[in-house]
Amino acid sequence: MIELNNVSKSFTLHNQGSAVIPVMEGATLSVAPGECVALTGASGAGKSTLMRVIYGNYLAASGQVMVGGVDVAQAEPREILALRRDTLGYVSQFLRVVPRVPTLEVVAEPLLAVGCDRQAALDKAAGLLARLNIPERLWTLSPTTFSGGEQQRVNIARGFAHDYPTMLLDEPTASLDVQNRETVLNLIEEAKARGAAIIGIFHDVGARERVCDREINVSDFTPGMAA
């Protein structure tokens, strides 16, 4: 489902003496349906960069980034938008939402975007929020005022609302208590069971060992840092 072929990425800082910083070279990996792969490597090795290259918010300098039959490195903006709507989910570490939109709507939005019936979407969103222990009295409020942990859980609920065939998870269990961590790991296992191909960053070793089938050390793709 996800296949990277010799992908490289560098940043050119035009306003800082045109410094060119190569951050990734020869990244090659593939993830099959139903498989969860963990990205490992020291901080700064390029785990998040690799995720962003796959999601399309970093532009790959060369190589192929195939997700569900679309080459993200070459695709038109609207092809990437369609891919993100239907095929590729992303749970980032930060919740970014329009102010004033109620939590329930925020979570249901990915479902409404794929044309799901409104009531069904809201029901599913409510189910996820309940599983993640967000008190019902908060559902009609905007998540912008929530605590860090609550925002994280809203973000996860939103990421798992639509059954994406491929998913990117950036530290999904960070800043969660034991019970919620368990719920998130269950959600990941359920996604795997329905055949989703998942790439994740987990600093939580226990979580990584439980849900991930194998590990890819990103340092192998870091120029000048090859182990």
Binding site: F11, R52, G56, N57, Y58, L81
Partner: peptide, 8 residues
């Protein structure tokens, strides 16, 4: 893409 232009 908006987030690509803003992030990279």
């Amino acid at each position: 893409l908006t987030d690509q232009v803003l992030d990279d």
